[in-house]
Amino acid sequence: MANQLQSDRFYVGGVASVAVPVVEGNTPVTMNVSNVGITDNGSGYTRSGNVMAFRGRFTSTGVGSAALFSISIPDGLTSDMPHNAGYAAVGHLTINNIATSTQELWPLIVSSSSDTEIYLGLSDVNFGLTPVNANNTFVGVQSASFEVSIPITEWQSQALIGTTKEATATESGLVYKPVSDRVSYTTGNLDTTSTTLVDLTGATITLTLATPGRVAYSFIAS
């Protein structure tokens, strides 16, 4: 059974989760997460020592059986990696009883050793849960879910206090910032007598999209 969760914006501390049915039997559970991107607003995560991580969490209820919980990030690292970034692209953990607790894996960690912007983009993350008992069979599992998040460690969060950030609900800061720009023309009335469309002086914006997507625009004048 395959499940897919897509998100194009994540916040530090934010969580996306999906419940995946795990049934008794020998069908492995997989989930694909795509378009996970984190970056900053140019002020919050540009100092040395910041660390971001990609965390996968698996929880379940029931009287479980042994399973192998795995996360793989095959080739989806879309960002230019920050200085001294290190990551392990594959994490796996054997769970003796999948009903006993929440299990976490941290398959990817990036850090910065200089004042550079951290940006982390993942286009393809695969979660898997495979029964590994004697019969390769899930037994007694009632429910399970995968959860992905991009946390930042406490002291690093503290380092953000006092800096400009655009999301403050958890004092964690914005980790995905849409590309945006605004122009305001104040230097005098503009006239036209052109009966064919011509560019309005100053009203030009160039955006660079990291991934395909829509752009919203707004024009206000009198």
Binding site: P178, V179, S180, D181, R182, V183, S184, Y185, T186, T187, G188, N189, L190, D191, L200, G202, A203, I205, L207, L209, G213, R214, V215, A216, Y217, S218, F219, I220, A221, S222
Partner: peptide
């Protein structure tokens, strides 16, 4: 199009 410091036009775009 009236444009001045107190009465500018504003154009914005964002992904």
């Amino acid at each position: 199009l009236l444009c001045s410091a107190n009465q500018p036009y504003q154009f914005s775009a964002w992904s």
